[in-house]
Design a protein around this nucleic acid. Structure first.
Length: 906
RNA sequence: GCCCGAGUGGCGGAAUUGGCAGACGCGACGGAUUCAAAAUCCGUUGGUGCUUACGCACCGUGAGGGUUCAAGUCCCUCCUCGGGCACCA
């Protein structure tokens, strides 16, 4: 067998087409297009963007109209990173823009704002590297983002732009913090932070990997520090219940439910042998109390010391010390493999007086429940594994499994579960739980209890680029709030962004700022030098858009009542838990404070899917230049020979499909990978939206991103498909505009019945599709209209104009230009949205399928109002149908008007 | 391991309540136009087989079974991929 040389070309990862085609020269390898084939988007897009700005077309008036329907359409505002907009941004933004424009045309009062979530780590890290003030880079990045968004023609009310780093904005972030503080929902606690000696700074969790700094790989350690913590757990139940009425993706609600992690169970108090203290445990299975054969404390539990006997002390201390050194990640990585030591101490089981040994093991977490458990190995998998390893007894108390083999965690009748007072024997889980909890409560040995996985929110960061806390400390260390009228506490300038060298954070180095006085007493005081996390500003920005310039209030209550809640909120699913949970928490606090009138901020939530890179076909080649089929490759190595292999990109036409897999054309035995990957710089498959706008125009980018597929789905980019959408816009243009003269080609003829039906079908499809956010099929419907209309002899104005209006939310620049050329002086942004007439949708003659025994054997055309008998008669007359019915006994005739006829024979 | 979501042509994807699977777009192929190309326009395009032809038959929505006159859609079992959680007592 001869050897096929793999192509030497390792690239291209994707076809780069950054040259505007008007400038293309004949020497280009790529297809050359002449400038005059395309509609002049280079001219009309900037023209209309200026027009909208100049005429304030999308300004939402401050005054509240008396009785006008409203809709609040919101995008998750961006973090303005230095790398600018990526193609993922315009996806969600175009979706909301279509809805906003559509609703405006329906006469609805629309709020559609945008702003900047501009505090945060990257700006600060950039400052560290270049000694540029984050304020500078932030301003530059915002300017870039704003310009990029404007180039895409989004209909934001730019007068309402907010910026979380603006003192006029963060004044109110601080104000909300004061509300939390006043209500006792903000408290201080010693919590560990990651401190890196080498870098002289505190690091965020995500900057520390396996106990080493992400940058430099220096060792980091957990040091306890005074921190601000928000009591989100107090709202756990309300955050859980509130989810029920929200129109959110079910998966997102489920993630929040899991995150909150509510469970019902009981606390049980165990006496300790020879120690004057009791040990509390939380369990969801108090019914298995009779099966408890040992106890386990988390290594950090504060009774460990007391309970440990001298004989076991050295071993226990060594174990706890080792557990402390392990990072959380390491502890989790060894999941399954149980470790632990016996303390020498015993606890007394309250139900039977039995003395059971107390162990220390790191499979019990200090952060959940009481940090201690009763172990019931027969009915808990973790306890089972531990008991087996250390030879502890396993006692069955629930029947149904085989506890000599594995733990049985399901329901079943209880056994071996009785004392003089109470018997659970024969009861099933739920009844047994009720019975034993009742007994425990009666005896004062325990009580019902609810637990959450949700923990309080660690709210401070040892950073510069964030909101300062409105808190000062008097000399005796007491914390005092800065009075409302002195807000904002502004962020001072820094001269150098070098790490402070202490875990306190950069602000602690600015003495003028740190040293202040107690506003009440005038005594010397020091400012809090921590800053708030990036989540703070994004927790409430949707409220500020309603009343962005209000100096006296966070938001005017009347305006708030009119605009809230947000009717449509679109953003990435990466925020499914944190941002969306934190914002809901603050909203509920503000609700309790009487600042807002709704219990939930975001009524309908949609996550746009991720846009992946162009589809890639990848083969593997070993060092001898031989292709290696993908099923033999694992971790960059040919598993049969152990030789290293290299990835090679292939062109689409070098591969073909063979069954379920792709193989090389010339070597069908060599399977290749065919998939799309997340866009990333390292992979080199990033599409820059600016390039797409340069080459095809903003309308094409908008339309393409909506045409790719369902909004919520992940979808691969395809440059060929971009061109297809661009061709559609060109066809729509030429449908109405004469290429040579630039004049419209419409006539004043009355549209025919067919033309009207075509139009009204399109109106119906586009309208219902926008309502359902099915933008891809809305565009398909408009394509069908253009395909049909291209065959018409005339284009009556009465069909052309509604079509332009339908197109306008999707391709607003093109639509405005067409509208103007059709002779209108004003923007179409506030024209009435076309409405369809039911009767114009109907056809006089409909096509129906005729089946014999469920298989289509012919189609017939019948009058739309024909009755059943007539239809059945003409169905039987169809030649092919008659052939299949010939000589058979028709037993049933199924008739579904307008759709299908089915003859069932014996 | 647990909880969600998804598997449809060469590709992205369509398909109210079960009612003609493959809309629309891409790609491919053929044709018109052109000195030639690009652009544009027209046509064909799920697979297999049969037919001089109009056409006809069979197969086909991850796999297997079921319900039904009729299943991409409903039910059961299983497989694969994606996402989330993961010693939560």
């Amino acid at each position: 067998m001869d050897t096929l040389r793999p192509p030497t070309r390792i690239l291209p990862l994707h076809r780069s087409r950054t040259t505007p085609f008007c400038c293309a020269t004949p020497t280009d390898q790529r297809p050359i297009r002449s400038a005059d084939m395309a509609y002049p988007f280079h001219e009309i897009e900037p023209k209309w963007q200026e027009h909208w700005e100049e005429h304030q077309t999308f300004r939402t008036p401050d005054e509240i109209p008396d009785d006008e329907e409203k809709v609040y359409v919101l995008d998750m505002f961006p973090y303005p990173s230095g790398s600018g907009l990526h193609v993922g941004h315009p996806e969600g933004y175009t979706a909301t823009d279509i809805v906003a424009r559509y609703k405006r045309m329906q006469g609805v009062n629309v709020l559609h704002p945008i702003g900047w979530d501009a505090f945060g780590l990257p700006a600060e890290q950039y400052a560290l590297k270049t000694n540029t003030h984050p304020r500078e880079t932030t301003r530059e990045n915002i300017n870039q983002f704003r310009e990029q968004l404007k180039r895409l023609g989004f209909s934001y009310d730019w007068q309402r732009e907010v910026n979380t780093t603006d003192p006029d904005y963060y004044k109110w972030t601080q104000w909300i913090f004061l509300k939390l503080y006043e209500k006792g929902l903000a408290y201080q606690s010693e919590e560990p932070v990651w401190w890196c000696e080498e870098l002289g700074t505190v690091l965020a969790n995500e900057e520390v990997i396996d106990g080493k700094s992400e940058r430099g790989g220096y060792p980091c350690e957990r040091v306890p520090m005074r921190q601000w913590v928000l009591k989100i757990t107090e709202y756990a139940d309300r955050l859980l219940e509130g989810l029920d009425d929200l129109d959110w993706p079910e998966s997102t609600k489920e993630m929040q439910r899991n995150w909150i992690g509510r469970s019902e169970g009981a606390n049980v108090h165990f006496d300790l042998v020879g120690v004057d203290d009791s040990l509390d445990v939380y369990t969801t299975r108090p019914d298995t109390l009779f099966g408890a054969t040992y106890m386990v404390l988390a290594p950090e539990h504060n009774l460990v010391d007391e309970i440990t006997t001298d004989q076991h002390r050295a071993e226990v201390e060594a174990y706890c010390e080792e557990a402390r050194r392990k990072s959380e990640r390491e502890r989790k990585a060894q999941k399954g493999e149980k470790t632990g030591v016996f303390t020498g101490g015993y606890a007394v089981n309250p139900v039977n007086g039995e003395e059971i040994p107390v162990w220390v093991a790191d499979y019990v977490l200090t952060s959940y429940g009481t940090g201690a458990i009763m172990a019931v190995p027969a009915h808990d998998e973790r306890d089972y594994a531990f008991a087996e390893k250390f030879g502890l007894p396993i006692r069955e108390v629930v029947e149904g499994g085989n506890v000599t083999e594995e733990a049985y965690t399901d329901d079943g009748p209880h056994v071996n579960s009785a004392n003089e007072d109470v018997s659970l024997n024969g009861l099933h889980n739920d009844e047994a739980i009720d019975a034993i909890v009742e007994w425990l409560e009666e005896k004062g040995r325990g009580e019902r209890s609810v637990n959450y996985q949700l923990q309080d929110w660690l709210f401070s960061r040892q950073r510069y680029w964030g909101e300062p806390f409105p808190i000062v400390f008097t000399e005796d260390g007491e914390d005092k709030p800065v009075p409302e009228e002195e807000l904002p506490v502004t962020l001072p300038d820094l001269e150098t962004f070098e790490p402070s060298g202490t875990p306190e954070g950069p602000l602690s180095t600015i003495e003028d700022w740190v040293n202040t006085t107690d506003p009440k007493t005038g005594e010397p005081a020091k400012r809090e030098t921590n800053t708030m996390p990036q989540w703070a500003g994004s927790c409430w920005y949707y409220l500020r858009f309603i009343d962005p310039e209000n100096d006296d209030q966070l938001v005017d209550p009347e305006k708030e009542q009119y605009w809230m809640p947000v009717d449509l909120y679109v953003g990435g699913s990466e925020h499914a838990v944190l941002h969306l949970l934190y914002a809901r928490f603050w909203h509920k606090v503000l609700y309790d404070a009487g600042v807002v009138s709704t219990k939930e901020p975001f009524q309908t939530l949609v996550h746009q899917g991720m846009i992946l890179g162009e589809k890639e076909y990848t083969a593997f080649v070993d060092e001898d230049g031989q292709y290696v089929s993908v099923e033999h490759v694992e971790g960059g190595v040919d598993t049969r020979t152990g030789k290293e292999v290299e990835r090679t990109e292939l062109d689409e036409d070098e591969v073909e499909k063979d069954g379920d897999v792709f193989v090389l054309n010339d070597r069908p035995d060599v399977r290749v990978n065919a998939r799309s990957h997340k866009m990333s710089k390292s992979r080199g498959n990033v599409i820059n939206p600016d390039d797409v706008v340069d080459e095809y125009g903003a309308d094409t980018l908008r339309l393409y991103e909506m045409f790719m597929g369902p909004l919520e789905q992940d979808k691969p980019w395809s440059t060929d498909d971009v061109e297809g959408v661009h061709r559609f816009l060109n066809r729509a243009w030429r449908l109405l505009i004469d290429d040579d003269s630039g004049e419209p080609t419409v006539t004043d003829d009355d549209p025919s019945r067919d033309q009207l039906r075509e139009l009204h079908q399109t109106i119906e499809a586009v309208t219902t599709d926008i309502e359902n956010l099915d933008f891809n099929t809305a565009i398909a419907a408009m394509m069908e209209f253009v395909n049909a209309a291209n065959k018409w002899d005339t284009m009556p104005r009465a069909t052309a104009e509604p079509f332009v209006l339908l197109l306008s939310p999707f391709a607003p620049h093109l639509a405005e230009e067409l509208w103007a050329r059709l002779g209108h002086d004003d923007s179409l942004a506030h024209e009435d949205w076309p409405e369809y007439e039911e009767e114009l949708l109907q056809r006089e003659v409909v096509e129906m399928a005729v089946q014999v025994n469920g298989t289509v054997r012919g189609t017939i055309e019948v009058d739309a109002d024909a009755d059943e008998d007539d239809v059945l008669t003409s169905a039987k007359e169809d030649e092919n149908v008659a052939r299949h019915l010939d000589g058979k006994d028709t037993q049933r005739e199924i008739y579904v008007p307008g759709q299908i006829v089915n003859f069932v024979t014996g």
